[in-house]
Design a binder for these strands. Structure first.
Lengths: 190, 190
DNA sequence: TTGACAACTTACTAACTAGTAAGTAAAATC
DNA sequence: GATTTTACTTACTAGTTAGTAAGTTGTCAA
């Protein structure tokens, strides 16, 4: 018998990886159970339903993101470095078995996932956009970022392009992902 | 007994709509059969496997796209209008029950779809990028588009952002999609 | 040392999945 | 008019799905 905290965390880790790899409809309790080395019902003991499990994955990610952005290591960076940090999150996803972002994965299947999970995804996406918008505004005021129009719209463009680029890279290779990141950077610093 | 051409086309239409709505792992032969008003096995008669069906959807879309771009109605447009036409395709998807593009839907589930289907998706994505790249080059040469770097990279950025924005709009609303399109336009015409 | 509880396993279900084999009726072909 | 072909239906299979109920075992507190 393993400590529940370890089991719960392990299950969440596996679920998160599977969501980023195969999507909500592409993984099952059996997959997690097999990889963890336990039986199907053990997963249900910790997370009664698939919706509860996936929702917990998103909630944990949201908490993690809030911790990151409020940590001095990120908070005190200059806007250009903040952006580099943000791009870095997604570069790591791409490098890690061609994973895509949770938001993109779940929004692509949005119409076939439970409503409670939809709400969690919406919350996460808003938080990502909010931070990116603030960072862009900060950089524009500081004179290091150049773009026309509102920061909110530029943030939506950049985040959408990252989300799409991670998916694109699966079919067309990692270079394409890097090209999109670099183009975003040069558009912003031009 | 209905004409095979009508049945095949109807099944392809339903499969395409379901792919854009629920994704490859989110729909079944039963869904199509129910909507078409036939039995499960009737779908298998026309398309022996789910891979064959989805591949046929993508092949048809690729052929359609080639017909469009080679038609004078698009071919003879000035670059700005070509871009408007292209954006219009995706605006219609967004307006039509919040559908997303086939490429995005299938790339999000890329690691849980058959390899033959993966190849079709790759082909389609390359064709879309190729046309967009050529259109951007044409516009840059004509002096109507402004952007730094290579056309291929800017094309990858724009297409990725559309793909992501259609997904984003499901959680955050149509306005967000329009914002991304407008930001792309103003970045390009600045 | 006992009892409670946490973390499972065993064994199961009902629903759904893609896919198949054999039969049927209407239409096209000869 | 007979035969073949097309477009199905009926009836089925083997596998997978999320989810449940009841039993088991190790750990810990009193």
């Amino acid at each position: 018998m393993v400590k529940i905290e370890n089991s719960k965390r392990t299950i969440l880790n596996l679920a998160e990886a599977l969501l980023q790899d195969k999507g909500f409809n592409g993984f099952s309790y059996a997959h997690i159970a097999a990889e963890f080395g336990v039986k199907n019902a053990a997963i249900h003991y910790h997370f009664p339903s698939k919706e509860a499990l996936a929702s917990a994955v998103i909630r944990r990610y949201r908490e993690r993101f809030q911790l990151w952005i409020n940590n001095a290591r990120v908070k005190d960076l200059v806007p250009e470095k903040k952006l580099d940090w943000f791009f870095g999150i997604y570069s790591e996803m791409r490098a890690d078995q061609g994973k895509i972002c949770l938001v993109g994965s779940l929004e692509a299947e949005f119409n076939s996932i439970p409503v409670g999970l939809q709400a969690e995804v919406e919350g996460l996406h808003k938080e990502l956009l909010k931070w990116l918008e603030a960072t862009l505004s900060e950089g524009k005021t500081a004179g290091v970022f150049n773009f026309t129009g509102q920061s909110a719209n530029k943030a939506a463009l950049i985040l959408s392009s990252i989300q799409g680029a991670l998916q694109m890279a699966r079919a067309l290779g990692t270079k394409k992902f890097r090209d999109v990141i670099e183009q975003n950077r040069s558009d912003l610093l031009a």
